[in-house]
Design a protein around this nucleic acid. Structure first.
Lengths: 120, 120
DNA sequence: TCTTGACCTGGAGCGCGCTCCAGGTCGGAA
DNA sequence: TTCCGACCTGGAGCGCGCTCCAGGTCAAGA
């Protein structure tokens, strides 16, 4: 079969996260639980890696561990469509607000740049 | 004269920061130094408050204390136009990149929302 | 068989950005 | 004059998100 699993090192390589971070995310319920070999070593499936990339994308946008734990729980476990959609909408609103906050800052930077760049 | 100064409590009220945070920012070189009364109490000028609001705007956009210290130093102290503009441009690039990261996350959220919202 | 190194666990440590606290001073209302 | 509350300082504490470490197991190549 074409479904290959990755060793922890390969998963770290593939996702750009450290082994410690992968284990931390699993402990915190953001990913997994990850399957193990009989000797206890983790084996990351393609689905695991895809989910880790989703989590990483959300982390990069500023979502906290608590929110990501709930994100994972809601999308994995039994949850109503309403619960899921409401949560996703809330995060969406927060992210758009954060974009606005950054835009404000960019405007301020632009003002300063213009101020220092002009000959006056 | 119309130039009024604010007490620490008033400055906190005006900026939305705590007294502890105002003192912390001053210790870290992000604001001030703030003038004092003879008895040692801080008196915040309108200019101080305006600068605190600028700092707060940058913090809200995610700039770290280290960057804000340099921001303050470059704009306050003797620094060449090139230094100032280069620094401001660097921060601007970072902020735009952060907006893109958040946009990516919003797209992912939208996909999930669409996935859970559709009847399939 | 021996060694190497990737991996395991539980738990401590760390940098950031505040936040809180103890113990003291001072200005103004009662 | 006395009190109260706003303020002062130096320093400890805290929550977050990792990151590191010690001590151990296991698979595989020389």
């Amino acid at each position: 079969m074409t479904t290959q699993t990755l060793t922890p090192g390969e998963a770290a390589e593939a996702t750009g996260l450290s082994l410690d971070t992968l284990r931390y995310y699993e402990r915190e319920g953001l990913i997994g639980p990850i399957d193990r070999t009989t000797s206890g070593r983790r084996t990351y499936s393609d689905g695991d890696v895809a989910w880790i990339e989703t989590v990483t994308c959300m982390r990069a946008a500023g979502l906290g561990i608590d929110h990501l734990r709930e994100f994972t729980r809601l999308l994995r476990e039994e949850a109503t469509v309403e619960e899921r959609v409401r949560f996703l909408h809330e995060r969406r609103v927060e992210l758009l607000a954060q974009i606005e906050a950054i835009r404000n800052a960019v405007v301020v930077l632009d003002d300063k740049i213009a101020h220092f760049s002009q000959p006056g």
